[in-house]
């Protein structure tokens, strides 16, 4: 039973983004969304050599001692450049059929690719990525339906291609698990 989604910002200051995200998640997953504070040791996750943050380490801290005895999904929100040792980088990370997920805006910002700041676009990408990673925690795997938010994105442009929402099949699975 998932009673709520708990968003934990990690050194994340953009209040308007947090607000929009909260509203959209509540709409999409039809559950209560809380914003919580949690002490996360980011220095521990930082890799000096790569100048990146170890995503799995942050995720582990996020789900440690979960509120509501695990009846909620946890979504970490940050703007670090994330990595998993075997990969050069990741957009985010999620536990398949698990408790927690983490997303970063770092590689979602147009500036990262040499473009101009675009707050609306960033908001849209963040919501898609948050939906996608949370979808994994509900047991969803990548979806072959082109428009579905669970469609796998190789490039940031792929994120722009897909819809903000889940397709009917994916929605049905979430409803079952919720």
């Amino acid at each position: 039973m998932t009673r709520s989604i708990c968003v934990i910002p990690i050194e994340f200051q953009d209040q308007s983004l947090i607000k929009s995200l909260r509203r959209y998640l509540a709409q999409t997953f039809e559950v209560q969304v809380d914003i919580r504070n949690k002490k996360i040791d980011t220095a521990r996750a930082y890799d000096q050599y790569r100048n990146q943050y170890h995503s799995s380490d942050l995720l582990k801290q996020l789900i440690d001692d979960p509120p509501d005895k695990g009846a909620c999904k946890i979504l970490g929100l940050c703007k670090f450049d994330l990595f998993i040792p075997i990969f050069t980088y990741v957009f985010g990370e999620a536990q398949l059929n698990g408790l927690g997920a983490l997303v970063s805006t770092h590689r979602l910002e147009s500036e990262f690719y040499g473009g101009h700041e675009d707050h609306e676009l960033l908001k849209e990408r963040l919501i898609k990525e948050a939906n996608h990673e949370l979808g994994h925690t509900f047991g969803l795997v990548h979806c072959k339906n082109a428009g579905c938010v669970m469609n796998f994105s190789t490039y940031v442009e792929d994120i722009d291609e897909k819809n903000i929402l889940f397709c009917n099949e994916c929605t049905a699975i979430i409803k079952q698990k919720r």
Binding site: S56, I84, P85, I86, F87, L96, H136, V141, H142, F152
Partner: peptide
């Protein structure tokens, strides 16, 4: 031989079903 590699790669492929 590295646990973290096995773990992250299997997560990666599981996410693809």
């Amino acid at each position: 031989d590295e646990y973290s590699v096995r773990d992250s790669l299997s997560q990666w492929f599981k996410a693809d079903g």
